[in-house]
Every structure is written in C-alpha cells, then in structure tokens.
C-alpha cells in the first residue's frame, strides 16, 4: 500500500463528471415517468388469478436474490477501477496468481444460492401449475364437468375450454350440450377454475394473457394445458407470443370474466345465435343448390 502522504492529490476529471451527469440524467428519466414505468421491475399485477399472482411473487424473489449479487459484482468492479488505477510512481502490483480457498468459497457460495432458488421454485411450482378448486361462488355454480383435465380438484365449479390457434385469431370451443364457440374473446365465469386445452390448426402460436397466466405454446399435433381462475370481473388481453406470420402482431386474445349469471346468459344467447346462423346457412345453401340445379344441373351431378 502507498502511504497516505505519498498518494497523489485527488483530481476530479472533467470527463468523469460528464459521465456521471449522463448516468444521472438516465436514472432521472426513468424515475420521472412513474406511470409509464409502473411495471419497470416486476410483471403486471395478476388481476385476481392466483397462478399469475404466485408467478409474480416467485419472480420478485429471484429479483431480490439477484440484487445483492449484482451490486456486489458492479461494486467491486467500479471500486477496483477507481481505487486501483495506475498512478505515477506507483509500485508494481503484487503478482497474485490465485487463492484456492477464495475460489472454492465463491464456487460453493454460488452453488448454495442456486440450491436455495431451486428449493423455492419447487415449493412454488404446485401453486402455479396445478389447477386449484373453484369457488366460492354466489348464486349457484356453473356446473360443467371437466372432461379430460383430471387434475382439477373436485368440489368446485370448473370449466374446460379448447383453445385453437389459427393465423391470426383464437377460437374457443366450449363443452356441450349444444354447440358453443367464440372467436377472439373468451367469456368465462368468475371464481371458476378454467382449464384450457390448447392446440393449433396451422403454424405454432402461443396463448398468453399476462395478467392471468403464463404462456402455453399452441403446437399443431399436440395439446398443451393451462389453467386460471379469475376473481375480478374485467377484460384481460394478451398477444400471441410465438412468431406465426405477417400478422403475428395483430393476433390478440382476450378473456372477459363475468359473474356466473351473466356468463349463463351470454352462453345461452351465443348458443342460440350459433343455431340461428347455422340454420340460416343451411337455408342459403339449399336455396343456392336449388337455383344451380335449375340452372345448371351438371354442377351437382356428383
């Protein structure tokens, strides 16, 4: 170490000041726009879906675990660069080539942090990936049995919806009786465990509503699953998250959560609309066939 009296006087470099100013302006810019940066460090709030909330918490844990490591590395680096920079007349530095104890120490330290992270992840996993029981519901449950999602715990209301991706829209097939499907916006009852069977009929897509649940890729030939439960009424939106072609950006999915009564009303109306539309289509086809049969019989010979 250089004796203090021999150390050269501190000189504030003008360029360093300029660098600090730029850094300060940058941090200030980020801090000055709180509205735009509400989710600057963590994902959006969950909108009442327990699995999105738990993912959010798990993410925050990883962030808090990372923060000391980040500060340690940057701190030591900046400290070394400032404190140990070359000064005129400084002696040759001590030629240290390593320190086995130190190296084993930080290897074990890094491993220990990751073991803790793995344990925490596995503790959180069931709460995120396994569907939980629906309810409590007022005004009677929507009693629709799940068909091929054996994981839903019995006793609560649940609903199984098949999600089919296609360029560039989502279709949602609801279970019977009676045909019920919708495009673009999925209407679901609140406080009900919704399980999704997700697939695609052309290229790969990925179904994702950030405030309710994470991504599940829609892969043709495979069925992926996902679940969620909404407690607050509202509309939740998410983009398709796998590049699927030129209009990938416009492939948006929505979930509208409504009370069970309103859901039943919507389902009844939608069913009758579909029936009416199917009937109208059948009528139109018959009319066309009759016209064509009269005009040019050869066209319908087969």
């Amino acid at each position: 170490m250089i004796p203090h009296a021999l150390a050269p006087p501190r000189r504030i470099d003008r360029r360093h000041v300029a660098g600090l100013l730029v850094l300060g302006a940058f941090v200030g810019l980020l801090a000055a726009a709180p509205d735009a940066f509400a989710d600057i460090l963590t994902p959006e709030d969950g909108g009442g879906s327990p699995q999105a909330e738990r993912t959010d918490v798990l993410y925050e844990i990883t962030l808090w675990m990372a923060l000391p490591i980040f500060l340690l590395v940057e701190g030591v680096l900046v400290y070394s660069l400032v404190k140990h920079r070359f000064r005129r007349g400084a002696p040759e530095p001590v030629q240290v080539r390593g320190n086995t104890r130190l190296e084993i120490g930080w290897t074990l330290g890094a491993a220990a942090i990751l073991v803790v992270l793995a344990v925490i992840t596995f503790a959180f996993l069931p709460g995120i990936s396994d569907p939980e029981r629906g309810g409590p519901q007022r005004g009677g449950a929507v009693a629709v049995a799940a068909i091929d999602q054996p994981d839903v715990p019995p006793g609560g209301p649940s609903l199984n919806i098949r999600v089919v991706g296609q360029q560039y829209i989502w279709r949602y097939d609801y279970p019977g009786p009676g045909r019920l499907f919708a495009y673009h916006r999925m209407v679901v009852p609140t406080n009900t465990t919704i399980t999704l069977d997700i697939t695609s009929q052309d290229v790969q897509h990925s179904f994702w509503i950030p405030e309710l649940f994470g991504k599940a890729d829609a892969v043709p030939g495979h069925v992926n699953d996902m679940w969620f439960k909404v407690t607050e009424e509202g509309v939740y939106r998410g983009n398709c998250a796998e590049l699927c072609g030129e209009n990938h950006a416009e492939m948006i999915g929505e979930v509208e959560a409504v009370s069970p009564e309103r859901y039943r009303a919507w389902a009844d109306r939608q069913r009758s609309d579909i029936r009416a539309a199917t009937r109208a289509l059948t009528d139109q086809r018959r009319r066309m066939q009759a016209q064509q049969g009269a005009g040019a019989g050869s066209l319908i010979r087969q």
């Binding site: 994902p43 993912t55 798990l58 993410y59 995120i128 950030p210 649940f213 994470g214 998250a241």
Partner: peptide, 8 residues
C-alpha cells in the same frame, strides 16, 4: 414457472 411469463 417464471419463464412461462417472460418467455418470448
């Protein structure tokens, strides 16, 4: 589980 949110 975090990647399910952050992926892509």
């Amino acid at each position: 589980p975090v990647d399910w949110q952050l992926h892509d």
